[in-house]
């Protein structure tokens, strides 16, 4: 029909393929370690986060900080999270749910 005059393969056709990629999940965790979120525990967080394709951020609600990239050890240290601080973890991507689930157990 007249639709033949349009490009045969629309470049922007996000509706179907994007759906699984837009999975997003957010939780609040409380730091339980008496020494807070330190280098070694931060290392384990980055290691775990790096196994997922999702983009993952964390914000320290107790310090009212901006969200930082959870795959960066230096940004993670910027949170300066002490014991009892609440961190908001947010993930978006195809495996966001699994990423959040894996990360929650580390705090």
């Amino acid at each position: 029909m007249s639709s033949n005059s349009h490009a045969p393969l629309p470049v922007d056709h996000p509706a179907q393929p994007e759906k699984p990629l837009q999975q997003s999940k957010s939780v609040v965790v409380t730091v339980s370690d008496p020494r807070g979120l330190h280098l070694r525990s931060g290392r384990d967080v980055v290691r775990t986060a790096s196994q997922f394709q999702a983009q993952i951020t964390a914000a320290n609600l107790s310090r009212n900080s901006n969200a930082v990239d959870l795959k960066s050890i230096l940004q993670l240290m910027q949170l300066q999270a002490r014991q009892g601080h609440d961190l908001q973890l947010a993930a978006s991507g195809p495996d966001a749910d699994a990423a959040i689930e894996a990360l929650c157990s580390l705090f």
Binding site: N64, S65, N66, S72, Q75, Q78, L79
Partner: peptide, 16 residues
């Protein structure tokens, strides 16, 4: 590349 990104990553928190 990630190591050199430390040049532009402040030590103190970016409290907003």
């Amino acid at each position: 590349a990630v190591a050199e990104a430390a040049l532009s990553t402040p030590k103190l928190s970016n409290t907003g």
